[in-house]
Design a protein around this nucleic acid. Structure first.
Length: 672
DNA sequence: TAGGCCAAGATTTTC
DNA sequence: TCTTGGCCTA
């Protein structure tokens, strides 16, 4: 018996062992919350390797970078090996990989740019402007969503969307001209390559004899197609999921994939993991009570052997600041009385904008925290500027990047000049950068001499740095020099005249960015340290995926989406109010979304191992106005006997509040 | 013609 | 609150 086998046979229950050992043929693992899924997957892969499956034959796909990284780490730790040929990655990252090797088959070049939402947005605006569509009556965000649905195959053109079609076609042809792809393309284009080029399909099928898809409930139609394409021949496909934790339908996740899987892979082996090892029975009962209100679930009976958890505490703080104070104070108390470690605490929120007040509260109480998810470091304005410089160097046809930086810092290239450039670019069918070259050099250029000189200076800048960056050597130093040459610091200072702290902070971010770059290019385990690989990677990653310094000693603040797959001894869910969970916008969009919102709440609850706190503010500041809030309807779905309402922060009416402040003032006066 | 200033509106969640 | 876009001025 192998060492791995000895290990897991002791540690796992019979269903889990089945899930580990069923490596041939299609397998569907329904893994309830806290049922030891990650452990099973880890052992499963270890077991496969132990059974003689080469690492290069395994393709494990997950949904988030965090999950991918964690899985890879766990397997490595278990086996004590590096496993350089084992691929554990997100669908999108794997898509990039396929594109890097084969995108030329569809007429793109290998130095393609990847556009994130903000790039897409700029392109969309640009396209609309060009087509003389008034921006006011165009719902940009909604349009992008519609485009995405079309691209990812979760919707067809219909009467409602038909009017967007010319815009879409133009958007697409621009993307092609710029040699750029968006997130949907990262799946869609590989699918097209595999379908249109049997030799490529064959190559991948021969290599990846075993596939594993985690968080299967979150796969979109196109991701499913991708998986199916690669796995249908050998049928060694294992998918792991839990329909109750499907929280990404807004991104195209389609629970129908489960049914589809059962059809496409007949004779599959279905394994249910229903024993919860994570949460106390109180927490589990609350979670079950909530999720039972959803229809359309695969039947499941999650149970735990643990008895007698402490009750769930519910508090009604006055407003979001009181909420932050309440949470901070509870954490301090628990840390003191029960030796709770900060890193064992998770504070979960529905939306990122709730983070700010909480962060302030933690800062005030000196509680170290880490915010994960949220705005990516790489989305920050100053970082995005740097990235666009790099992208333009990598791919000079990338007009979106060019537009962003051509006047950042100010170079005196104004509206008129730009219009002339665009006119030229359009008629010649070339990118703006080529147009710049052409018009700045031409003697019969329609541009003013001044403008010509400005353009020439800009193109010279890019042309100088391009070869240096592409050489793949000392990129970090090159970027440092670039930042100095464009004098980005002065730009920051002039942009933030009232507030030089902000300028300093932003500059510090740029230094951090350069550090990340340096770490990337000097990592000996990195097989592809060039500029393209770096750019590709950072567009797919949140900051927090890169920071792997130890986060022990910090509490974890994150959105519920980001918390999926994680667990904490103590969990706080903040903002459990109607309109927040369930989110007003989601419900507005479609009433049926209530079920997904409920699943979200379910995911939040089931992150807790020992103790769960819920807070629901009576008032909350939204944008700039204070609104009255009512508790989330989901609270009523938790069996009442499991909840105690926290005394500390029950309603304080106005007169009492006034008294309280008077008392505090008096006390303060006395002691000073 | 470029850049500064002011008013209005906004992203729910992530690759 | 912060960003974006439009308008006005030099």
């Amino acid at each position: 018996m192998t060492a791995v086998k000895q290990h897991y046979q002791k540690e796992l229950n019979p269903q889990q062992i089945r899930a580990v050992e069923a490596i041939n043929g299609p397998v569907l693992i329904i893994a309830g919350a806290g049922s030891g899924k990650t452990r099973v997957i880890t052992y499963r892969i270890a077991h496969m390797l132990g059974a003689g499956v080469p690492q290069s034959a395994i393709l494990a796909l997950t949904f988030t970078n965090k999950a991918a990284r964690e899985m890879a780490e766990r397997i490595r730790a278990l086996l004590g090996k590096k496993l350089p040929n084992l691929i554990v990655s997100t669908f999108h990252a794997f898509g990039v990989r396929v594109l890097r090797s084969h995108i030329h088959r569809l007429g793109y070049r290998e130095n393609f740019s990847i556009y994130d939402t903000s790039d897409q947005l700029s392109l969309l605006k640009e396209t609309a402007r060009e087509m003389k569509m008034p921006l006011e009556n165009l719902d940009l965000y909604g349009t992008l969503t519609a485009f995405s649905r079309i691209k990812s195959g979760s919707a067809e053109w219909n009467e409602d969307t038909a009017q967007l079609r010319p815009l879409y076609d133009d958007y697409q042809s621009h993307m092609k001209l710029y040699n750029a792809v968006d997130f949907d393309d990262l799946i869609q284009i590989p699918i097209r390559i595999l379908r249109e080029h049997p030799d490529v399909l064959d190559e991948y099928r021969r290599r990846f004899q075993y596939m594993l898809v985690d968080e299967f409930q979150d796969t979109s139609r196109q991701q499913y197609d991708f998986m199916h394409l690669l796995g249908v021949e050998h049928q060694n496909v294992c998918v792991v999921g839990d329909d109750d934790q499907s929280i990404y339908s807004w991104r195209g996740a389609d629970y129908k994939n489960l049914v589809q899987f059962e059809n496409d892979f007949p004779g599959l082996c279905e394994i249910k993991l229903e024993r919860n090892y994570r949460s106390s029975d109180t927490i589990l009962a609350a979670a079950n009570g909530v999720i039972a209100h959803n229809t359309n679930r695969k039947s499941k009976n999650l149970w735990t052997g643990t008895q007698g958890g402490s009750p769930i505490e519910l508090a009604y703080p006055e407003d979001e600041r009181a909420e932050a104070a309440f949470i901070a104070e509870k954490i301090k108390t628990l840390a003191m009385r029960e030796q709770l470690k900060y890193h064992d605490v998770g504070v979960l929120i529905r939306t990122n904008n709730l983070a700010r007040t909480l962060e302030e509260g933690f800062l005030a109480e000196n509680i170290p925290y880490r915010m994960s998810g949220g705005e990516s470091f790489f989305q920050r304005k100053e970082i995005k500027d740097m990235i666009c410089y790099l992208r333009l160097c990598a791919n000079p046809d990338d007009d979106v990047s060019l537009l962003r930086i051509m006047n950042t810092p100010r170079r005196g290239i104004g509206r008129k000049t730009l219009e002339q450039l665009q006119e030229y670019a359009r008629s010649a069918g070339v990118s703006l950068f080529s147009a710049m070259h052409a018009l700045s050099a031409a003697s019969d250029s329609p541009l003013a001499a001044r403008a010509q000189a400005d353009l020439a200076e800009f193109t010279a800048l890019i042309d100088t740095y391009r070869p240096k960056l592409l050489s793949g050597k000392r990129m970090a130093e090159t970027v440092t020099a670039l930042v100095a040459e464009i004098d980005y610091w002065s730009h920051l200072v002039s942009e933030h005249q009232k507030n030089d702290k902000v300028a300093k902070w932003k500059f510090r971010n740029i230094e951090l960015f350069i550090d990340i770059m340096r770490a990337y290019e000097s990592d000996p385990d990195n097989l592809d340290p060039g500029l393209f690989a770096f750019l590709n990677r950072i567009t797919l990653q949140l900051r927090d995926d890169i920071e792997d310094d130890d986060d022990r000693g910090k509490i974890n603040l994150m959105t519920i989406h980001a918390a999926k797959g994680l667990e904490h001894e103590v969990v706080f869910v903040a903002g459990v109010e109607d309109g927040v969970i369930p989110h007003a916008r989601a419900i507005e969009e479609d009433e049926a979304n209530i079920e997904e919102e409920r699943r979200l709440f379910y995911v939040a609850i089931t992150r807790a191992k020992r103790k769960l706190f819920l807070t629901s503010c009576r008032r909350r500041k939204v944008m700039r106005e204070v609104i009255d809030c009512s508790p989330s309807p989901f609270l009523e779905e938790i069996p009442a006997e499991l909840i105690t309402v926290s005394e500390a922060d029950t309603t304080v009416d106005q007169s009492e509040a006034a008294d309280y402040f008077a008392m505090m003032r008096a006390r303060f006066a006395k002691s000073s």
